[in-house]
Design a protein around this nucleic acid. Structure first.
Lengths: 230, 230
DNA sequence: GGAGAAGTGGAGCTGTCTTTCCGTTTCGAG
DNA sequence: CTCGAAACGGAAAGACAGCTCCACTTCTCC
């Protein structure tokens, strides 16, 4: 307040005067964690993050004593991106196109980043920064939803959380590279969300093959469960 | 090949002359595994199955040397039940009602039994008995699907595997006791699958609350990830 | 009711993942 | 250049699940 705003504040807060090498490593760790969390989800071992970052595990633990710190640091801006995208969709002159755009994008964003999907759906991963970020998404989606409902295009009995749940659920289908497959179900969902229609929107992609079923649940582990291997 | 068909054959095969206590334990283990796999999925520890069955782990491993043996023994008849249900649905005089019935039931059956969901979707859990069982489902669903398509009620561009994937996906929503929630999305799916409709089928249940998002992905573990606890 | 095969249970081995600790290295102020 | 503090890395301790092994118990057949 008065004269003493101690420089220590800066250390505890954001603008930490970390030693140059420490700051460099911090960035390397964040970059590595972004990649590893996206691929493997938030359970990923600190070992792997350290290896990808090219630092020792000890360094990761010193900088981010618990996983929540790392999650907070990483996903705050990703959540900002989600909010921005919802708001952009809500600004689309065509309310229905805006909704379609957001659902399509949301499914892919979560499919491409398993960590994001976990942060958005499972409570209790990050700390306060994540909680605050999440709280900003739902109202934004609510705007998008009610606009499409007012226009008489989106059925009146869905809520913004229905959209969130459906979007998160569809993101679980297929691997990161199977956008084609997921978009079939996005299309079905959107056709189901429309108030009425005469004819189905054509499903994109090609019909799934037997192996496409497999990417839903966690696969059998290398243990006794005998992964048939082919 | 000639004269000696050792009585051991019987032991290795099906009609095993197990000792009375061993046969009793075998049944206890199967019952326990059915319950544990349904709740926790097929990764569940043999420890827990043993504890529920009231036997030692060693006993479980002796009787079912690998997880696939246990899965085979348990899920063959559950798959038969799925096939039976598809065939019953295909016999419904109303092709659309049959499809709705099967999707609704299939989602709940898989939601109530995580093990079943894994057996049906992830390849490589059981052994040959499971593989053979799975192979019987798809053709049966194909009948159901093409009947509804021929009647002009189901959109022509979905395949039976689309139905299987969508069904399995929706079963991941909510806990075992949230059939009300899942049926909202089943309704949306069916509305999306219809060739055309004028008005949306009303969504059952009540709109989800924030906490309902959480049951999609595996929750944070008790480790450093700081499950915010509330 | 006795002998021996069959079956049992759970202690403990193994491999995996998380976290801590401390001897060494690197930085940067003087 | 020198020195102290900060940071480093990775070995190893701890926690834990999957699986094995064998001293002991229980059954069955005679």
């Amino acid at each position: 307040m008065s004269s003493v705003t101690p420089p220590l504040d800066a250390v505890v807060d954001e603008g930490r005067p970390l030693r140059r090498d420490a700051e460099r490593n911090r960035r390397l760790i964040l970059a590595a964690a972004r990649q590893v969390f996206a691929q493997r989800g938030l359970h990923a071992g600190f070992d792997e993050i350290a290896r990808v970052a090219g630092v020792g595990v000890g360094t990761v633990y010193r900088r981010f004593p618990d996983r929540g710190d790392l999650v907070d640091a990483l996903f705050e801006e990703e959540i900002d991106a989600v909010v921005a995208r919802v708001e952009a969709a809500a600004a689309d002159p065509d309310p229905w196109a805006g909704l379609c755009d957001f659902v399509t994008w949301g499914v892919e964003a979560q499919a491409a980043d398993r960590g994001l999907s976990q942060v958005l759906t499972a409570g209790g991963y990050g700390h306060d920064r994540i909680a605050r970020g999440r709280a900003r998404i739902e109202p934004a989606v609510a705007v998008l939803v009610s606009r499409a409902q007012s226009a008489g295009l989106l059925r009146a009995d869905v809520s913004s959380l229905d959209i969130a749940i459906a979007t998160a659920t569809l993101s679980q289908i297929g691997g990161p590279d199977r956008a084609d497959l997921r978009q079939r179900y996005v299309t079905l969902l959107l056709d189901g969300l429309a108030v009425s229609r005469d004819t189905p929107s054509p499903l994109p992609g090609v019909p799934p093959v037997d192996a496409d079923l497999a990417c839903l649940v966690e696969p059998a582990r290398r243990g006794g469960s005998g992964p048939a291997e082919g």
